[in-house]
Amino acid sequence: MSDALDAAREVARSPLALLAVTLAGYQLGRWIQQRSGGHALAQPVLVAIVVTGLAITVLDVDYPEYRSGVELIAFWLGPATVALAVPLHRQADRLKGFVVPMLVAVVVGAVVSITSAVLLARALGADEALEKTLATKAATTPVAIALTDALGGIPPLAAVFAIIIGILSAITAPAVLDLLRIRDRRARGLAVGAVSHGIGASRMLREDETEGAFAGLAMGLSALAISLLVPVLALVLF
């Protein structure tokens, strides 16, 4: 009897089961999204993270073990990021008359988001390692990790911050943009991609192809801007 239980537990903790839980969590998220008529809170990524997080806690699987078990899913993030060139290509006519505003806006946005994260954290009594970790959170996850490492922050936490900000943005950004009266779809996509990388872009892709295309482009441009600006701003801020 206990042999059977052990065997069942072993299967439940296998990479295949972890993969199944992750996929099932995502499917549940999509189902809820459809059922709720595309409600902003019902982002499949959020539902999947909650379901999977609970599952690995119950199964007592630690995160590194989970992460290596689902490498098969994580792998596709790379090709999917490359694929963001596709909507951009289809929307390329819309770049006309927008290149200068776009480049200036991304640089301004990078300065504002790095500086404000550090200063707000400092004002509320965060230590320096935490300030440095927060500085890079607008960048796409691998950039945030690399920059935080170079700066002397806490790299895994930088990834967590980048993900959380992405989800926050996926849920609220379209409504906030409406409040800000930003009505040019290019500018809407640009703003979201610049502050919340691929997860923000995934929401905008669902809303509208132009918004998604410019969010993807902004993610790339702001990764570049943040990488170049963080070392410079660090001289002033720290």
Binding site: L23, P44, G166
Partner: peptide, 22 residues
């Protein structure tokens, strides 16, 4: 590309579950 992008959110789940650990 279009097929992959339709499920872009799925590919963030493995990194996102790291939130639980922190």
């Amino acid at each position: 590309g279009t097929a992959l992008l339709r499920h872009l959110q799925l590919f963030f789940v493995p990194a996102g579950v790291g939130v639980v650990a922190y």
